[in-house]
Design a protein around this nucleic acid. Sequence first.
RNA 1: GGAGAGAUGGCAGAGUGGUCGAAUGCGGCGGUCUCGAAAACCGUUGUCCGCCUUCCGGCGGACCGGGGGUUCGAAUCCCCCUCUCUCCGCCA
Length: 424
Amino acid sequence: MLTINLIREKKDFVIERLKVKNFDSEEIVGRILSLDATRREIQLKTDTLQAEMNRISKEIGNLVKAGKKDEANAAREKTYSIKEEIRSLTEKIDPVENELKNEIIKLPNLPHESVARGNGADDNVKVREGGAIPALPDTALPHWDLIKKYDIIDFELGIKLTGAGFPVYKGKGAKLERALISYFLDQGVKAGYTEMMPPIMVNEDSGFGTGQLPDKEGQMYNVALDGFYLIPTAEVPVTNIYRDVILNGDQLPVKNIAYTPCFRREAGSWGAHVRGLNRLHQFDKVEIVQIAHPDHSYKALEEMVAHVESLVASLGLPYRIMRLCGGDMSFTSALTYDFEVWSAAQKRWLEVSSVSNFESFQANRLKCRFREKGEKQTRLVHTLNGSALALPRIVAAVLENNQSESGIAIPPALVPYTGFEIIN
RNA sequence: GGAGAGAUGGCAGAGUGGUCGAAUGCGGCGGUCUCGAAAACCGUUGUCCGCCUUCCGGCGGACCGGGGGUUCGAAUCCCCCUCUCUCCGCCA
């Protein structure tokens, strides 16, 4: 959520920047400014009247204590009309405030100045690439055939237990999954992140804090009986740790890492390109989250990108890093880099990580601030997160890229974690 | 699931209708003392909103789990909700 101050002070700038995200905000901003003016006008009136009320009430107290009953009653008479006036103003201010908030949360985050205009994935900018695309024989199989051949992941069993998109990992498949989680966590801890194991269900406040609610309600599984949501990403609980928190400047940056299962309803997004592990309702992901000083958040973003890059490279996967254009970026992000790995049998790039700086957009919803030592003023922090990494598509690429007649070779970096070198 | 108790500032913990944004202690910050530190002593120490102000800041309003009510006046009284704790039962 953008701050009202920014909208008030840099109205034209806000409108211009949002055009990069193909978002026409002129009307909304106009409504916001008018509601804001109304709100302040009403508040000034009520505050003045309330001050008068408080003064008289205090006076009555003193008069009663002094035994001046008649004067006290006279003063009491005066309060009735003021009270009525306050009541009617209060009734007006509530809807104005609600409407104001409803309008503000409609505005997406402003894109960073480096973000290009564009409509979709085709307009994203390739920043870097690495790794060699393997040459596979024509007999190479897509991962959904490989997992059947080696019996390591069972989709039909998942359908029986739950439904489509909830696979069962078996034998070496399960071990590979666990190995990747451990490997990613260990690498993160080495890079200075603190490991967290958060709840995988969150309440409504948390859903609002990171921006899933109210807009993307339909994307999350809802445990209606208790009012909880299954997390679509560890970003939600791990970032919400800092909801309503004021940090000391010297505590920044906060660097946390967490493995969690992730749950996504993916309503309406089924169709082509979602076979096998490409899109699931439940999947595993290791997420890195940073709470950064606003002056250093882009340095933090680069550091996170470098970390994710080192992970992908260490698995020997061909990858490319894309800077998302305005039209392809999420509502909450100011700058996003996507990581894609080459899936050799599907012959397509699969998104395995998305690393973003949200600047103060989430922080403003979360009310996460920090105070510099010696300063009185609090400021909003910047929040960042990225997948490091999302497992299923990594598994898909590892299986497809490393297949041969004799089986699937495990990347050397993972062997200490799997305990085996080949799936056959 | 049954019975009971409670929710106050960073923490602990007073406060049952007016002068309470809230005693006191701890912690934090600044200072005195010291070569330095500890101890001791002195001072200071919440958040949000609005108005004024060139900065420093000043003034006003709100906030004692959340929401509503009674009252001229509510941390204090009433109603609803949420959460926590204790005991019993069940249980990974």
